[in-house]
């Protein structure tokens, strides 16, 4: 009887090679090639123009704004995300299924629509917009609008990461902490948070990458005032439309690097804390 070299339930060698080659080719063509192209284009005219493109006042303003927006949106979404997943995972209440669906809404709605919602809410013809304006608060075509739109779009990342993790862990540890005399706050800081920290970090990473890279929703609410309300993705598009390819790709390379760093950190987290993150179904 012939000795079969591979496991009886796995595919034959030819099929396996075909599958692997197809996926690698696909990845190379659709993911790797564009990434290389971004850097190639950015450095086409050498390092000087690349740095000049990054250090122009508009580019600097766009970088600052992007960092500012992420610095506000990500922490807020961490807090909202923990609250929502705590509520969903640790106790029962009416409308829980609805809340879970609602959390997914930003994923299922086109970002452009998310932006338009804020235009309707805070625009000149709305109830809120003129009222806030009378107090000197500009939302639309200003930083607050960009922050709001970004929060909306990036909301699910942390919550989606934590809900399955917390459901999986149940309430046993919290009950144990309470029975040992800990109050709610101590239980959260000493027991719940350490239990979810790697899943949380993973969610923050994804949330941050999206917050810095969001285009659609931000484009609608920003008004694209150069040097004031343009984030990196918007600035890239504007530069590109002005045929300033080098500067556009220089800025784009920043986002590409952010993506690479996120990917490396994400892989490192998965490798090191795979079990805990696996609970969240990624």
């Amino acid at each position: 009887m012939a000795i079969s070299r591979h496991s009886p339930i796995s595919e034959s060698l030819g099929v396996r090679i075909a599958l692997i080659v197809t996926s690698v080719l696909f990845m190379a063509l659709f993911l790797l090639l564009p990434l290389v192209a971004v850097f190639a284009e950015a450095f086409r005219s050498g390092l000087g123009p690349y740095l000049a493109g990054l250090s122009s006042p508009d580019a600097q303003a766009a970088i600052r704004l992007t960092l500012l927006v992420a610095a506000i949106a990500v922490p807020l979404n961490v807090i909202f995300g923990i609250c929502a997943s705590w509520a969903i995972a640790k106790f029962e209440f009416k409308g829980k299924a609805f809340l879970i669906t609602l959390i997914d809404l930003p994923f299922s709605v086109s970002p452009v629509i998310s932006g338009l919602v804020y235009v309707l809410l805070f625009g000149g013809g709305s109830m809120l917009g003129p009222w806030l304006k009378s107090y000197g608060i500009e939302v639309l075509f200003a930083v607050p609008g960009i922050v709001l739109a970004t929060i909306f779009v990036t909301f699910p990342f942390v919550a989606r990461e934590l809900i399955p993790l917390m459901q999986d862990q149940g309430t046993g540890d919290e009950e144990a902490a309470l029975s040992l005399g800990a109050n709610g706050w101590q239980t959260f800081w000493r027991v719940t948070l350490p239990n979810i920290k790697w899943g949380l970090l993973y969610g923050v990473l994804l949330c941050n990458a999206r917050a810095m890279g969001e285009f659609g929703a931000v484009a609608v609410v920003s008004g694209r005032i150069r040097g004031q309300t343009t984030t990196i993705p918007l600035q890239v598009e504007m530069l590109y439309n002005e045929y300033n390819a080098t500067a556009a790709f220089a800025l784009a390379s920043l986002l590409a690097m952010l993506a690479l760093v996120t990917l490396v950190l994400k892989t490192a987290l998965e490798w090191r804390f795979g079990d805990e993150i696996a609970a969240s179904g990624h």
Partner: peptide, 20 residues
């Protein structure tokens, strides 16, 4: 009274030890 005020020792079925 709350569980904290009752001063009880509770051993859980699956121990619920703090893994970290």
């Amino acid at each position: 009274k709350t569980v904290q005020e009752r001063n009880i020792g509770f051993v859980f079925q699956h121990y619920a030890l703090f893994r970290h």
